[in-house]
Nucleic acid binder design. Structure first.
Lengths: 243, 243
DNA sequence: CAGGTGGACTAACATTGGTTATTTCCGCCT
DNA sequence: AGGCGGAAATAACCAATGTTAGTCCACCTG
């Protein structure tokens, strides 16, 4: 059984939204069955799969994506360490998209049989797992709303989102974080061509809002960036509520 | 208490995905508390609200939308009769977007207190409610994936989706259905200008895939339309599975 | 019946973003 | 040190979509 500290980041994310009892923490930890590693570029699950377990990424970045008929890849979400990448397959059963590793990843696996049993005994914890899938949904909605705006808004919005989501883990230090994405992948996520991503990055660079060297993003002017992106973190639901 | 037949369409949607026991049907019906009407153009819930009940639309079409800073409205989803429009607020608590009526609507309201009690006593029904919110999520993802493609693909994809979703109600007759949206609203949903929606409609009309007169859409060539839209209904999860 | 309104449609022009091809840069391997 | 390969950057040109500014028509209302 995986060491329990591996799921600490996920538990912290839950506890930002509501309080957990000791019994709930233990019940959840007891659902973890195994671990594995995936190299950058590998698929964790594929469209069409019927997973029998859900995966929590403890290290590395992943994307939800689909390859379209004309050979293009469209990325629909980015997951950071401490996120479940396919918790929804517990309920939906059938994968309507794939999940791929952006960097080398370490994951902990939770068999659906155990999670289903959990939903019978822990209604409150069930609502919190439901919550986490709804936050994913909320992020999708936000991306949709952002898709209407221009490329610079969209790109800076993505930086804002990742900054806030990583800030609740220990992966932002001194306004800097690692983001293992190429400009091509960024384009796939924003629905833009790689060339236009490059153009847009140049433009944003000239506005001194952030830097992006190698894989390191550094926020220079958070308020300016937020304004540029029209970023309002409400949709991340980073608020503790009795649920 | 609202008459139980009002929620029949919703129950049918659940039963397309899994079997319900009589007790579950009754427990759900018992959660309905009140009804009300909204005229076209009214908001059912607004961004920032903290609803104490969730609404099931029994008649009429609604949208999830947000007004952006520059005065534009972006529509993120369309709901048809028999859909819960804000079931997610049971868990998320805080509305990060608004829901507006596209046409005159009749809704049945389910207090969160009763639904929360339901989650304590009916884990299987809880998973089915969870499922319905995940299908919304899946639709969001699909719209994101579609956003990368061109305008004609996107527009025909929307027609396909609504056709399939309405077909499971009794609102499609003889390949025809009513769609109470203007070209402006269509543009808000697709992230296109109204002018471009018009251009795109003309183009699709010339391909004889469907007609759209007044508010009536009529499918002329379903296979052709599906191909044009690269439409694959998998993401609607219209499959019965033990969940 | 006249006037007003909202929605569909059109045209001309401006802008954004896509495509293709080439070059530069930089880390890494031998 | 040399060379290879992936990613970033650049340039020129092209296609898709947005903007503005209308017209036209059906329907409603006074």
């Amino acid at each position: 059984m995986p060491e329990t500290h591996l799921i600490d980041t996920f538990l912290r994310k839950l506890e930002l939204r509501d309080t957990l009892t000791v019994a709930e923490r233990e019940a959840l930890a007891a659902c973890a069955e195994s671990e594995s590693d995936y190299p950058a570029g590998a698929d964790l699950v594929r469209e069409g799969d019927r997973p029998l377990e859900s995966m929590l990424v403890t290290r590395g970045f992943t994307t939800r994506y689909r390859d379209s008929a004309d050979g293009n890849r469209q990325i629909g979400a980015i997951h950071v360490p401490g996120d479940f990448v396919d918790l929804q397959s517990l309920i939906l059963k059938h994968m309507d998209h794939s999940v791929g590793a952006l960097s080398d990843c370490h994951v902990v696996k939770f068999p659906h049989s155990r999670l289903t049993a959990l939903t019978r005994e822990h209604p409150h914890l069930t609502r919190l797992l439901w919550l986490m899938t709804l936050i994913d949904s909320s992020i999708h909605r936000e991306w949709l709303f952002a898709a209407g705006r221009g490329a610079p808004e969209q790109l800076s919005h993505l930086i804002c989102e990742l900054y806030v989501r990583l800030a609740v883990t220990d992966l932002v230090v001194d306004q800097r974080f690692n983001l293992p994405m190429t400009q091509v992948e960024l384009g796939e996520a924003l629905g833009l061509s790689a060339v236009h991503v490059n153009r847009t990055l140049q433009q944003l660079r000239s506005e001194d809002l952030f830097t992006w060297q190698g894989q390191e993003v550094r926020i220079l002017d958070w308020d300016g960036l937020r304004r540029r992106a029209q970023f309002d973190p409400t949709y991340l639901h980073l608020v503790s509520e009795p649920r």
